[in-house]
């Protein structure tokens, strides 16, 4: 009996450790997708001159979840609701951020970008997109570093933590 219990404890803590580790990896991946999304947005807005609701829709179609959901939502609301793009972007962001592994710094960049969305002329709009992309670049680097640093640590910590608890309880 004791053995089964001990195994269960170790298993649980190991799973926790793994979860934390993959969360790091997912964050890096999502930041990378954000960059791709903004590059696509730039193409649509600056070169394609596509109206914002349709630009967001196209970007959403190129991406996978959870990013696609955000752009879908923004596009849908832009078409249906009579509010400024800034309002819609920030509201949607507020709800959506819980479903991602992104951290406050990335959400802040997105929020900042939303403040002027669709309200500036071509050149300034382009600058805003470029600025956001360069911020994401930095975030991606940091995310990769912390992934390297902590990924294996979380994994072994999970397992070893379980062992520790078992030893104490024995």
């Amino acid at each position: 009996m004791k053995l089964v219990g001990a195994l269960l404890i170790i298993l649980t803590t190991t799973v926790f450790g793994w979860e934390f580790a993959t969360r790091l990896a997912r964050r890096t991946k999502q930041i990378r997708y954000l960059k791709i999304a903004f590059e696509a947005l730039e193409t649509e807005m600056v070169f394609g001159m596509t109206p914002l609701p349709y630009a967001c829709e196209k970007v959403a179609n190129q991406l996978s979840s959870p990013l696609s959901q955000f752009f879908h939502e923004v596009s849908k609301k832009l078409k249906e609701e009579e509010r400024t793009a800034r309002d819609i972007w920030c509201n949607t962001l507020e709800k959506w951020k819980k479903t991602t592994d992104l951290e406050a710094s990335e959400i802040n960049i997105l929020n900042q970008f939303g403040q002027t969305l669709g309200e500036q002329d071509l050149e300034n709009q382009r600058k805003q997109i470029r600025l956001a992309i360069s911020y994401f670049d930095q975030e991606e680097k940091q995310a990769m570093e912390s992934q390297k640093k902590f990924e294996s640590m979380y994994k072994s910590l999970g397992f070893l933590g379980g062992v520790l608890i078992v030893l104490i309880m024995l």
């Binding site: 109206p51 509010r83 400024t84 309200e119 002329d121």
Partner: peptide, 23 residues
């Protein structure tokens, strides 16, 4: 002012960047 921002949004379909010539 906020009405003005909304009005411009509606006029441009939230895309002032497309109004280069018009502006």
């Amino acid at each position: 002012e906020s009405d003005s921002a909304l009005m411009l949004s509606l006029l441009s379909q939230h895309s002032v960047y497309r109004l280069e010539e018009e502006l």
